[in-house]
Protein backbone atom coordinates (compact mmCIF):
# COMPACT_ATOMS: atom_id res chain seq x y z
CA UNK A 1 0.00 0.00 0.00
CA UNK A 2 2.75 2.42 0.98
CA UNK A 3 4.42 1.77 -2.40
CA UNK A 4 1.28 2.92 -4.19
CA UNK A 5 1.23 6.23 -2.33
CA UNK A 6 4.98 6.73 -2.74
CA UNK A 7 4.51 6.15 -6.47
CA UNK A 8 1.56 8.52 -6.55
CA UNK A 9 3.38 11.35 -4.78
CA UNK A 10 6.58 10.91 -6.79
CA UNK A 11 4.62 10.61 -10.03
CA UNK A 12 2.60 13.76 -9.41
CA UNK A 13 5.66 15.65 -8.23
CA UNK A 14 7.52 14.60 -11.38
CA UNK A 15 4.65 15.74 -13.61
CA UNK A 16 4.57 19.07 -11.81
CA UNK A 17 8.30 19.47 -12.16
CA UNK A 18 8.00 18.93 -15.89
CA UNK A 19 5.22 21.50 -16.02
CA UNK A 20 7.38 23.92 -14.07
CA UNK A 21 10.26 23.47 -16.49
CA UNK A 22 7.88 23.98 -19.40
CA UNK A 23 6.40 27.14 -17.85
CA UNK A 24 9.81 28.57 -17.05
CA UNK A 25 10.98 28.00 -20.62
CA UNK A 26 7.73 29.42 -21.93
CA UNK A 27 8.09 32.46 -19.70
CA UNK A 28 11.64 33.00 -20.90
CA UNK A 29 10.51 32.86 -24.51
CA UNK A 30 7.50 35.08 -23.88
CA UNK A 31 9.61 37.70 -22.11
CA UNK A 32 12.01 37.63 -25.08
CA UNK A 33 9.17 38.08 -27.57
CA UNK A 34 7.65 40.88 -25.48
CA UNK A 35 10.97 42.69 -25.35
CA UNK A 36 11.47 42.27 -29.10
CA UNK A 37 7.98 43.57 -29.75
CA UNK A 38 8.46 46.56 -27.44
CA UNK A 39 11.78 47.45 -29.11
CA UNK A 40 10.24 47.17 -32.57
CA UNK A 41 7.28 49.32 -31.56
CA UNK A 42 9.63 52.06 -30.39
CA UNK A 43 11.68 51.81 -33.55
CA UNK A 44 8.77 51.84 -35.99
CA UNK A 45 6.54 54.37 -34.30
CA UNK A 46 8.03 57.62 -35.70
CA UNK A 47 8.16 56.31 -39.29
CA UNK A 48 4.70 54.89 -38.99
CA UNK A 49 3.30 58.12 -37.66
CA UNK A 50 4.83 59.98 -40.61
CA UNK A 51 3.29 57.46 -42.98
CA UNK A 52 -0.18 57.75 -41.41
CA UNK A 53 0.00 61.51 -41.46
CA UNK A 54 0.38 61.49 -45.22
CA UNK A 55 3.73 59.90 -46.00
CA UNK A 56 3.99 57.86 -49.18
CA UNK A 57 6.13 54.95 -48.12
CA UNK A 58 4.96 52.42 -45.59
CA UNK A 59 7.71 51.39 -43.17
CA UNK A 60 9.03 47.84 -43.58
CA UNK A 61 7.21 45.39 -41.33
CA UNK A 62 8.65 42.24 -39.69
CA UNK A 63 8.61 39.17 -41.92
CA UNK A 64 7.25 36.87 -39.24
CA UNK A 65 3.42 37.00 -39.44
CA UNK A 66 2.83 36.57 -35.72
CA UNK A 67 5.28 39.29 -34.78
CA UNK A 68 4.07 41.57 -37.58
CA UNK A 69 0.47 41.20 -36.41
CA UNK A 70 1.40 41.87 -32.77
CA UNK A 71 3.51 44.92 -33.66
CA UNK A 72 0.82 46.34 -35.95
CA UNK A 73 -1.86 45.80 -33.35
CA UNK A 74 0.27 47.61 -30.78
CA UNK A 75 1.07 50.49 -33.12
CA UNK A 76 -2.39 50.99 -34.53
CA UNK A 77 -4.10 50.66 -31.14
CA UNK A 78 -1.89 53.34 -29.70
CA UNK A 79 -2.31 55.67 -32.65
CA UNK A 80 -6.03 55.18 -33.14
CA UNK A 81 -6.85 56.19 -29.56
CA UNK A 82 -8.07 59.78 -29.32
CA UNK A 83 -7.52 60.24 -33.03
CA UNK A 84 -10.38 62.23 -34.49
CA UNK A 85 -8.89 63.11 -37.89
CA UNK A 86 -10.87 61.20 -40.51
CA UNK A 87 -8.00 60.95 -43.00
CA UNK A 88 -5.69 59.58 -40.37
CA UNK A 89 -8.32 57.06 -39.25
CA UNK A 90 -8.92 56.14 -42.87
CA UNK A 91 -5.26 55.35 -43.33
CA UNK A 92 -5.24 53.24 -40.18
CA UNK A 93 -8.23 51.42 -41.56
CA UNK A 94 -6.62 50.80 -44.97
CA UNK A 95 -3.38 49.64 -43.35
CA UNK A 96 -5.34 47.21 -41.20
CA UNK A 97 -7.27 46.01 -44.24
CA UNK A 98 -4.01 45.32 -46.02
CA UNK A 99 -2.12 43.56 -43.25
CA UNK A 100 -4.65 42.31 -40.72
CA UNK A 101 -7.95 41.53 -42.46
CA UNK A 102 -6.79 38.15 -43.73
CA UNK A 103 -5.34 37.21 -40.33
CA UNK A 104 -8.57 38.13 -38.55
CA UNK A 105 -10.70 36.34 -41.12
CA UNK A 106 -8.74 33.18 -40.41
CA UNK A 107 -9.08 33.70 -36.67
CA UNK A 108 -12.82 34.31 -36.90
CA UNK A 109 -13.38 31.09 -38.79
CA UNK A 110 -10.82 28.80 -37.17
CA UNK A 111 -9.45 30.50 -34.04
CA UNK A 112 -10.06 29.82 -30.36
CA UNK A 113 -12.68 31.81 -28.47
CA UNK A 114 -10.12 34.30 -27.10
CA UNK A 115 -8.53 34.75 -30.54
CA UNK A 116 -11.92 35.42 -32.12
CA UNK A 117 -12.93 37.93 -29.45
CA UNK A 118 -9.56 39.73 -29.62
CA UNK A 119 -9.89 39.85 -33.42
CA UNK A 120 -13.35 41.39 -33.04
CA UNK A 121 -12.00 44.07 -30.70
CA UNK A 122 -9.42 45.08 -33.30
CA UNK A 123 -11.82 44.85 -36.25
CA UNK A 124 -13.91 47.46 -34.49
CA UNK A 125 -11.00 49.65 -33.39
CA UNK A 126 -9.44 49.70 -36.87
CA UNK A 127 -12.79 49.76 -38.74
CA UNK A 128 -12.06 46.81 -41.04
CA UNK A 129 -15.13 47.07 -43.28
CA UNK A 130 -14.34 44.06 -45.44
CA UNK A 131 -15.15 41.76 -42.52
CA UNK A 132 -18.53 43.36 -41.67
CA UNK A 133 -20.73 40.79 -43.42
CA UNK A 134 -18.69 37.89 -42.11
CA UNK A 135 -19.13 39.13 -38.55
CA UNK A 136 -22.86 39.65 -39.08
CA UNK A 137 -23.31 36.21 -40.64
CA UNK A 138 -21.91 34.56 -37.50
CA UNK A 139 -24.25 36.41 -35.12
CA UNK A 140 -27.15 33.96 -35.32
CA UNK A 141 -25.03 31.11 -34.01
CA UNK A 142 -23.74 32.93 -30.95
CA UNK A 143 -25.39 32.79 -27.52
CA UNK A 144 -26.67 36.22 -26.48
CA UNK A 145 -24.91 36.18 -23.10
CA UNK A 146 -21.47 35.57 -24.57
CA UNK A 147 -18.85 38.29 -24.98
CA UNK A 148 -18.29 37.13 -28.56
CA UNK A 149 -21.91 37.93 -29.43
CA UNK A 150 -21.77 41.29 -27.68
CA UNK A 151 -18.54 42.24 -29.41
CA UNK A 152 -19.86 41.08 -32.80
CA UNK A 153 -22.81 43.42 -32.29
CA UNK A 154 -20.45 46.27 -31.44
CA UNK A 155 -18.54 45.58 -34.66
CA UNK A 156 -21.71 45.47 -36.77
CA UNK A 157 -23.06 48.71 -35.34
CA UNK A 158 -19.73 50.52 -35.53
CA UNK A 159 -19.43 49.48 -39.18
CA UNK A 160 -23.05 50.59 -39.86
CA UNK A 161 -24.43 47.20 -40.85
CA UNK A 162 -28.15 47.94 -41.54
CA UNK A 163 -29.35 44.34 -41.09
CA UNK A 164 -28.31 44.37 -37.47
CA UNK A 165 -31.35 46.55 -36.59
CA UNK A 166 -33.74 43.71 -37.41
CA UNK A 167 -31.58 41.33 -35.39
CA UNK A 168 -31.64 43.68 -32.39
CA UNK A 169 -35.40 44.14 -32.56
CA UNK A 170 -36.05 40.41 -32.73
CA UNK A 171 -33.63 39.58 -29.90
CA UNK A 172 -33.86 42.76 -27.78
CA UNK A 173 -35.04 40.97 -24.65
CA UNK A 174 -31.80 39.00 -24.61
CA UNK A 175 -29.64 42.11 -24.34
CA UNK A 176 -29.14 44.51 -21.48
CA UNK A 177 -30.21 48.14 -21.83
CA UNK A 178 -26.59 49.09 -21.22
CA UNK A 179 -25.43 47.07 -24.23
CA UNK A 180 -28.24 48.39 -26.43
CA UNK A 181 -27.25 51.94 -25.53
CA UNK A 182 -23.65 51.18 -26.38
CA UNK A 183 -24.76 49.88 -29.77
CA UNK A 184 -27.06 52.81 -30.51
CA UNK A 185 -24.26 55.25 -29.77
CA UNK A 186 -22.30 53.67 -32.60
CA UNK A 187 -24.98 54.22 -35.23
CA UNK A 188 -24.82 57.19 -37.58
CA UNK A 189 -27.90 59.39 -37.89
CA UNK A 190 -29.49 57.62 -40.91
CA UNK A 191 -29.47 54.30 -39.08
CA UNK A 192 -30.82 55.95 -35.91
CA UNK A 193 -33.75 57.27 -37.97
CA UNK A 194 -34.30 53.73 -39.18
CA UNK A 195 -34.31 52.49 -35.57
CA UNK A 196 -36.87 55.16 -34.66
CA UNK A 197 -39.03 54.19 -37.64
CA UNK A 198 -38.96 50.53 -36.63
CA UNK A 199 -39.74 51.39 -33.00
CA UNK A 200 -42.73 53.47 -34.04
CA UNK A 201 -43.98 50.68 -36.25
CA UNK A 202 -43.56 48.09 -33.50
CA UNK A 203 -45.75 49.19 -30.61
CA UNK A 204 -45.50 45.85 -28.87
CA UNK A 205 -44.72 44.98 -25.31
CA UNK A 206 -41.01 44.56 -25.90
CA UNK A 207 -39.44 47.75 -24.74
CA UNK A 208 -35.73 47.21 -24.13
CA UNK A 209 -34.62 48.86 -27.35
CA UNK A 210 -37.10 51.72 -26.84
CA UNK A 211 -35.73 52.36 -23.33
CA UNK A 212 -32.19 52.33 -24.61
CA UNK A 213 -33.09 54.62 -27.51
CA UNK A 214 -34.78 57.20 -25.28
CA UNK A 215 -31.86 57.26 -22.85
CA UNK A 216 -29.27 57.51 -25.61
CA UNK A 217 -31.10 60.38 -27.29
CA UNK A 218 -31.03 62.31 -24.00
CA UNK A 219 -27.42 61.52 -23.21
CA UNK A 220 -26.37 62.71 -26.64
CA UNK A 221 -28.86 65.60 -26.57
CA UNK A 222 -29.83 64.55 -30.04
CA UNK A 223 -31.97 67.32 -31.55
CA UNK A 224 -33.60 65.29 -34.38
CA UNK A 225 -35.22 62.97 -31.83
CA UNK A 226 -36.24 65.51 -29.17
CA UNK A 227 -39.92 65.58 -30.10
CA UNK A 228 -40.04 61.79 -30.30
CA UNK A 229 -38.69 61.61 -26.72
CA UNK A 230 -41.11 64.27 -25.49
CA UNK A 231 -44.00 62.41 -27.09
CA UNK A 232 -43.20 59.36 -24.99
CA UNK A 233 -44.23 61.23 -21.80
CA UNK A 234 -47.74 60.14 -22.71
CA UNK A 235 -46.84 56.49 -23.28
CA UNK A 236 -49.01 53.89 -21.52
CA UNK A 237 -45.93 52.04 -20.19
CA UNK A 238 -44.49 53.38 -16.94
CA UNK A 239 -40.91 52.39 -17.77
CA UNK A 240 -41.09 54.19 -21.11
CA UNK A 241 -42.43 57.35 -19.45
CA UNK A 242 -39.65 57.19 -16.84
CA UNK A 243 -36.97 56.86 -19.47
CA UNK A 244 -38.45 59.76 -21.42
CA UNK A 245 -38.42 61.87 -18.23
CA UNK A 246 -34.84 60.92 -17.54
CA UNK A 247 -33.89 61.68 -21.11
CA UNK A 248 -35.48 65.13 -20.88
CA UNK A 249 -33.45 65.82 -17.73
CA UNK A 250 -30.39 65.23 -19.90
CA UNK A 251 -31.75 67.42 -22.71
CA UNK A 252 -32.35 70.17 -20.14
CA UNK A 253 -35.31 71.57 -22.06
CA UNK A 254 -39.00 71.12 -22.73
CA UNK A 255 -41.06 72.44 -25.65
CA UNK A 256 -43.99 73.03 -23.28
CA UNK A 257 -43.49 73.13 -19.47
CA UNK A 258 -47.12 72.07 -18.96
CA UNK A 259 -46.13 68.57 -20.10
CA UNK A 260 -44.65 67.72 -16.70
CA UNK A 261 -47.39 69.18 -14.49
CA UNK A 262 -49.19 65.84 -13.99
CA UNK A 263 -46.02 64.15 -12.78
CA UNK A 264 -45.79 66.22 -9.57
CA UNK A 265 -48.80 64.37 -8.23
CA UNK A 266 -48.16 61.02 -9.89
CA UNK A 267 -48.93 57.85 -7.92
CA UNK A 268 -45.43 56.61 -8.84
CA UNK A 269 -42.70 58.15 -6.70
CA UNK A 270 -40.15 57.81 -9.50
CA UNK A 271 -42.25 60.13 -11.67
CA UNK A 272 -42.48 62.69 -8.85
CA UNK A 273 -38.70 62.45 -8.45
CA UNK A 274 -38.13 63.10 -12.15
CA UNK A 275 -40.58 66.00 -12.09
CA UNK A 276 -38.29 67.58 -9.49
CA UNK A 277 -35.22 66.81 -11.56
CA UNK A 278 -36.69 68.28 -14.75
CA UNK A 279 -37.72 71.41 -12.86
CA UNK A 280 -34.10 71.91 -11.83
CA UNK A 281 -32.56 70.84 -15.14
CA UNK A 282 -34.80 73.10 -17.25
CA UNK A 283 -34.93 75.96 -14.72
CA UNK A 284 -38.74 75.93 -14.60
CA UNK A 285 -39.34 78.71 -12.08
CA UNK A 286 -43.09 78.34 -12.52
CA UNK A 287 -42.96 75.03 -10.66
CA UNK A 288 -41.21 76.46 -7.58
CA UNK A 289 -44.20 75.84 -5.29
CA UNK A 290 -44.79 72.35 -6.67
CA UNK A 291 -41.14 71.61 -6.00
CA UNK A 292 -41.42 72.87 -2.41
CA UNK A 293 -44.39 70.60 -1.82
CA UNK A 294 -42.14 67.64 -2.65
CA UNK A 295 -39.91 68.46 0.36
CA UNK A 296 -42.51 66.68 2.48
CA UNK A 297 -42.95 63.72 0.15
CA UNK A 298 -43.09 60.37 1.99
CA UNK A 299 -40.27 58.97 -0.21
CA UNK A 300 -36.70 59.96 0.67
CA UNK A 301 -35.49 60.03 -2.94
CA UNK A 302 -38.23 62.51 -3.91
CA UNK A 303 -37.39 64.80 -0.99
CA UNK A 304 -33.71 64.53 -1.85
CA UNK A 305 -34.31 65.42 -5.51
CA UNK A 306 -36.59 68.32 -4.59
CA UNK A 307 -33.92 69.79 -2.31
CA UNK A 308 -31.13 69.02 -4.74
CA UNK A 309 -32.93 70.77 -7.57
CA UNK A 310 -34.14 73.70 -5.50
CA UNK A 311 -30.45 74.55 -5.15
CA UNK A 312 -30.29 75.12 -8.88
CA UNK A 313 -32.51 78.21 -8.65
CA UNK A 314 -30.76 81.49 -8.08
CA UNK A 315 -32.52 81.92 -4.75
CA UNK A 316 -32.06 78.22 -3.93
CA UNK A 317 -29.49 78.46 -1.10
CA UNK A 318 -31.49 81.14 0.73
CA UNK A 319 -34.68 79.14 0.22
CA UNK A 320 -33.09 75.98 1.61
CA UNK A 321 -31.70 77.84 4.61
CA UNK A 322 -35.18 79.15 5.36
CA UNK A 323 -36.71 75.70 5.05
CA UNK A 324 -33.96 74.21 7.24
CA UNK A 325 -34.85 76.67 9.97
CA UNK A 326 -38.58 77.18 9.69
CA UNK A 327 -40.38 74.36 7.88
CA UNK A 328 -42.97 72.56 9.97
CA UNK A 329 -42.05 69.14 8.59
CA UNK A 330 -38.91 67.69 10.25
CA UNK A 331 -38.14 65.63 7.11
CA UNK A 332 -38.11 68.79 5.03
CA UNK A 333 -35.90 70.60 7.56
CA UNK A 334 -33.55 67.64 7.64
CA UNK A 335 -33.07 67.32 3.89
CA UNK A 336 -32.74 71.07 3.43
CA UNK A 337 -30.04 71.26 6.11
CA UNK A 338 -28.18 68.39 4.49
CA UNK A 339 -28.33 69.98 1.07
CA UNK A 340 -27.10 73.36 2.24
CA UNK A 341 -23.79 71.88 3.32
CA UNK A 342 -23.48 68.97 0.93
CA UNK A 343 -21.98 70.44 -2.17
CA UNK A 344 -20.05 67.47 -3.52
CA UNK A 345 -21.40 64.42 -5.32
CA UNK A 346 -24.51 63.97 -7.39
CA UNK A 347 -27.77 62.31 -6.62
CA UNK A 348 -28.82 59.11 -8.32
CA UNK A 349 -29.93 59.69 -11.88
Amino acid sequence: MAEFFIGLVIGLAAIQLLLLVYLVLWKKRTLGTENRKAAMLEELKPDFLTYLEGGEEEPAMPENEKLRTAVLEGLLSELVADQKDERFRGKISSTAERHLAAVYKKRLTAGTWAERVNALYFIEDFRIHSLRRLVFSRLEQLPADDEECRQSLRVCTALQEPDVIGFLISRQESFSTGLLKELLRRFDEPLLHEVKRRLEADDGETENLMLAFLTTCGEQQSAPFFLFVEGKLADRRKEVRLKALRSLVSYGRLSDPALIAPFFSSEHWEERMYAAKITGACGLGGYRDALLSLFSDPVWWVRFSAADNALKFETGPALLTRIAEQHEDPFARDIARHMVTRKGGDSVA
Binding site: A114, E115, V117, G178, E182
Partner: peptide
Protein backbone atom coordinates in the same frame (compact mmCIF):
# COMPACT_ATOMS: atom_id res chain seq x y z
CA UNK B 1 -6.30 33.01 -20.86
CA UNK B 2 -5.32 34.91 -23.97
CA UNK B 3 -8.17 37.41 -23.91
CA UNK B 4 -7.12 41.03 -24.32
CA UNK B 5 -8.14 42.39 -20.92
CA UNK B 6 -7.57 46.00 -21.80
CA UNK B 7 -9.77 45.94 -24.89
CA UNK B 8 -12.44 44.12 -22.90
CA UNK B 9 -13.11 47.05 -20.58
CA UNK B 10 -11.97 49.90 -22.81
CA UNK B 11 -15.53 50.46 -23.97
CA UNK B 12 -16.91 50.83 -20.47
CA UNK B 13 -14.40 53.37 -19.21
CA UNK B 14 -15.99 56.36 -20.89
CA UNK B 15 -19.44 54.94 -20.93
CA UNK B 16 -22.73 56.21 -19.57
CA UNK B 17 -24.06 52.65 -19.46
Amino acid sequence: RKLNRHEQIEELSGDNG
